[in-house]
């Protein structure tokens, strides 16, 4: 036995012989739904934002190093490519933020019935897009 999980995969058939229990069907046989799509998006944005956290720490380190290093960092952030990446991180952050609130509410016992789950899923997508646009409007127009 290579894996302890193997121990749980053994059952008996109706004739009394041992069988390896079937695994659940693979992911690709399921139709993507708002529930599963938003769930994997939470994970993907989480991993992406971890890379963003490294960039944040490098930005802080550049500021703590020298004024030359920080102006290079600021020039990278302000470049076209930098702004595109930053926009992506803004969207990922607000999505993870809003869906995180959804998860916390589920953990607290609210909104876990299917109609609510579908409604809150749509609300999360709209809120993430809205907050991203709002933050960029403030950044580009107001400040």
């Amino acid at each position: 036995m290579q894996d302890v999980r193997e121990a749980l995969m053994q059952g008996r058939n109706s004739a009394g012989g041992t069988v390896r229990r079937p695994l659940s069907p693979h992911l690709q046989v399921y139709r993507p739904q708002i529930t599963s799509t938003l769930s994997i998006l939470h994970r993907i944005t989480g991993v992406a934002l971890s890379a963003g956290a490294i960039l944040l720490s490098l930005w802080l380190a550049a500021a703590a190093t020298s004024s030359g290093a920080f102006s290079v960092a600021q020039a990278i952030v302000g470049s076209v490519l930098g702004m595109i990446v930053l926009f992506g991180f803004t969207l990922a952050l607000f999505y993870h933020f809003c869906n995180g609130i959804r998860h916390l509410l589920w953990d607290a016992g609210f909104g876990f019935d299917l109609p609510s789950v579908h409604r809150s899923g749509k609300a999360v997508v709209l809120a993430a897009a809205g907050l991203t646009v709002l933050a960029w409007l403030i950044g580009l127009v107001v400040l």
């Binding site: 944040l56 004024s67 920080f70 952050l93 933020f97 609130i101 933050a135 950044g139 400040l143």
Partner: peptide, 19 residues
């Protein structure tokens, strides 16, 4: 939750800032 909003606000306030 509050700290992320603060982070976004800070990055916006420090847009193009010098050291």
């Amino acid at each position: 939750l509050p700290l992320a909003l603060y982070a976004v606000l800070s990055v916006l306030l420090l847009k193009g800032a010098t050291q």
